[in-house]
Simulated assay, not measured.
Amino acid sequence: MAEERVTKLASERAVVVFTKSGCCMCHTVMTLLVGELAVSAAVHELDRDPLGREMEKELARRLGRGAPAVPAVFIGGRLVGGTSKVMAMHLKGELVPLLKNAGALWL
C-alpha cells in the first residue's frame, strides 16, 4: 500500500518532495527548490499523513541503507535523492537542467 501511494504521489507534479515538519534538512531543500529556483513543488509532510510512517519506511528502502528517509526529492517521477544528492547536483550544475527537462523550470 505504501509503495503504491509513494509512486502515485511522486508522479503528481514535475517536482515532489516528501518531508517532515520541523526537519531542518527538509527546510534547506525546500528553500533551494521553492525559494531560490522558484519551483512549484508538491510537498507531502509524512508526519501529517495517516500512512506517513509506512511511506517513510518505503522511502528509506528506496534511498538505500543509512540514508535518511526525508527529504526525498522526486523530479519527473524519478527519485533523485535526499539533501546531499540534491545539493551536490546543484553545485555541479546538474539540477537546473534536470528541472528544465521535467518541465519544472522554464528559464
Rank of each mutant, 00 (worst) to 15 (best):
E12A: 12
T28V: 14
A60Q: 10
G76F: 02
K20G: 14
K20I: 12
S84L: 10
A102T: 06
T28A: 09
K20L: 14
L37E: 01
F74S: 04
E58D: 03
A14D: 10
R53K: 14
K92G: 06
M89W: 00
R65Y: 04
G93L: 15
F18I: 05
R5A: 13
A69P: 02
L107N: 13
H90Q: 00
T19D: 12
V6W: 04
G76S: 02
A88P: 00
M87N: 12
A67H: 12
A72T: 01
R13K: 10
L79K: 14
P71D: 03
G76R: 06
E54Q: 15
C26D: 06
G81E: 01
I75S: 10
M55K: 09
T28M: 05
R62P: 11
R62W: 15
P50D: 08
V15A: 06
R61E: 07
D49M: 11
P68I: 10
V29G: 05
A2C: 10
V39N: 04
L95P: 03
V86P: 04
H44P: 00
W106R: 09
V86I: 13
W106D: 01
M89A: 01
D47C: 08
G103R: 13
H90I: 02
L98C: 01
A67V: 13
A42T: 07
G52Q: 08
R78F: 05
V43C: 14
E45W: 06
C24S: 12
P68C: 11
M30K: 06
R48Y: 10
L91C: 04
H44V: 04
G93M: 14
A69V: 04
G93V: 09
M55Q: 12
L63P: 13
A60L: 11
E36R: 06
G76C: 04
